[in-house]
Design a protein around this nucleic acid. Sequence first.
RNA 1: UGUCCGAUGGUGUAACGGUAGCACUGCAGAUUUUGAUUCUGCCUGCCCAGGUUCGAAUCCUGGUCGGACAACCA
Length: 569
Amino acid sequence: MSTLSSEKDTNAAADNYRNFIEEIIEQEIADGKNEKRVLTRFPPEPNGYLHIGHAKSICLNFGLAKKYKGLCNLRFDDTNPTKEDVEYVDSIMEDVKWLGFEWNEEPRYASDYFEQIYQWSEMLINKGLAYVCEMTAEEISASRGTPTIPGKASPWRNRPSAESLDLFHRMRAGEFPDGKYLLRAKIDMGSPNMHMRDPALYRIRHAHHHRTGNKWCIYPMYDWAHGQSDYIEGITHSICTLEFEVHRTLYDWFLDQIVEGNYRPRQIEFARLNLTYTLMSKRLLQDLVQCQIVDGWNDPRMPTISGLRRRGYTPESIRNFAERVGVAKRENVINVALLEFCLREDLNKKAPRVMAVLDPLKLVITNYPEGKTEYMIAENNQDDEHAGTREMPFSREIYIERDDFMENPSKKFFRLCPGGEVRLKNAYIIKCEEVIKDAAGNISEVHCSYDVNTRSGSENSNKKVKGTLHWVSIPQALSMEVRLYDRLFMDEDPADVEEGKTYLDNLNPNSIRIINAFIEPSVKNAKAGDIFQFQRLGYFCVDSKYSKEGKPVFNRTVTLKDHWTKKNE
RNA sequence: UGUCCGAUGGUGUAACGGUAGCACUGCAGAUUUUGAUUCUGCCUGCCCAGGUUCGAAUCCUGGUCGGACAACCA
C-alpha cells in the first residue's frame, strides 16, 4: 500500500475535514469505545463481479482502516449457495488487490461461522425468541402486513421451545424438503419496521455450497449472519449502504441477544455511488453479459473493476475518484466526467506519447527525395524529463488524420488547408500545394512541399505556424486493430425508462467501433496493459484479451479533452 | 396513510452559531511543436414558513419535496 501514501488526498489531506463516518470514529476513539480499535470489513456476496460502486466502498473501508491505524477484513457474505460461486470469489480478490489494498490476514467467509450461528439460533429458541414456522412463503408474505398495516402472528408463533428445537435439529439433519420449515425470530408482528415482524433466520436449501459443499442444508439469512460475523471477527464499524438503514434496528436486536462484554460493532450507512450513463445494478450487468450484449464481465465498456482495468483505467485514478466523490448520506449521481477527469489526470503523467492515425489521408511531400528516410527525435513525454526520447521514421509519403485537412476551412480552422502551412510534429513545416481527388470527387491525396530549414530541433525551427499535426510514415507504419469505445447507454439514467421499454432500448449502437489504424513502429512489441497517448487523439492501452505477440490490439481508454471538435458539432 | 433517512450552484462535497468555500462541468482568455497539459478569470447555490439569537446553511417547530423498507436475496 506504499503507493497510497505518496498520493495527494484531495479531500482528506485538506486541513481538518472529516466525513461523517470519520467524525463518528473519532468520537468513539475519544470515548474509548472498543478499546479505541478500528477494524472495518469489505463484505461482498460472491455472486457477481465488483463494479465501480464497490470500489467506493472498498476505498472507504480500507481507507478508514489505514487512516486510523486499524485493519480491514475481506469477508465473503456467502449465505445463499444458489447464487454464489468461486469464480466470483477469485475475481473479487483479484480486483481488491489490483485496486491496491491488502486485507487483514486471510479472507473470511460467513460460511466459516455457520456452526456458531447455528448454536446462537438454538440459544434464541431456548430463550423463547425464535420458533420454527410451517407457513408457506406465500402465507408468510400475506401475514406480514404492509408498511401501514400490522402483520398477523403465525399460528406456530407460540410453539414450545422444545418442539422448535427438535424441528430445528431435524431441519439441519436434512429430514425436510426446501421450504417446509422456517426458523423465525419472535420479535413484533406489529412493529412499524417491517424487518422486525418475525424475520426469517434460517431456511432449508438443499443446495451445494461453493465452500461447505453438502455439509449444510439450512442457511442463515443475511440479517442473522452479517452482524454475527461482524461480532465474531471483532469488527468495530460495519459500513454499508443506505438501503440497510431500516435493518439497523434488527442488527442491534440480534447483537443484544449475543453480545457479552463491552465490545460491540456498529452499523453505519452511507450513500452508494451512482454514475451518469452507467448501470450500477449487478443484476442488469449480469443480463448484459448473459445476453452477450457485451464481451463478458470485463468488457472494456463495463463499469466493473475488471472492465475498467481492461479499458485502461489505473488503480490510482479510481482511488482518487473515490476520494473526490466524498462520503455522505444523501442520494447522489456523479457525473461520469469526473471519473474521466481522474483518469486523464493520472494517464497524462504516465502515458508515453506516440503517433497514430485512425482515419488516414495520404500526404505526399513532393519536394522530399524519393526513397529517403530520416529519423526524427520525439519526446516520449514532454512533461516528464525522465521519459526520454525515441526515433520516428519520416519519409516522402505519410498519413495524416482526415480531420486535419479541410478544403474549404472555416475561419478558426488552423490545420491544413489549400495553400496553408502547418507543422508536422517533430518534423518539418509543410505547405499544401495541391489536392488530389478520385473519380467520385473525394479527396484521395494531398500534395505538399516542405521547408528543409524547419526540421524540429534545428536552429531555424522557430518559425511559427498555428497548427501542428500528428502523422505516420507510410512505409514503416504498422496497421493495427484499434477499438474505439463510447458510453454503453445513451441516456443519462439508463435504468430510468418509460413504460413498455427496458434499459436495453437505451443501448448506444455505436458503443464500440473496431478499425484498423496506422501507428508508428515503436509500439510493435507493446504488451497487454501498456498505456500510450496517441497524440491529439486520446489514451489507448493494449488489450489483454485480443492482443498477440507482436500484434497488439489497442483499446481507446479515453479521448483527450477536446474543445475544438466539441464546438464544431 | 407507518417507520427510518435525506435536502447547499448544472453535478458532487465543505461550513460544527460569526465573510457560503473546494472540485468537476460550462464559458472566456494566456501559454503551447498535442485545439492536450499548465495558468488566469467568470457564470451559477443555502427547499419553504415561522421561532430562538446581536447574529442561523447550522439550533427549535411546522410544512414541502426526494429516497429506502412489505425475498425463505444480500
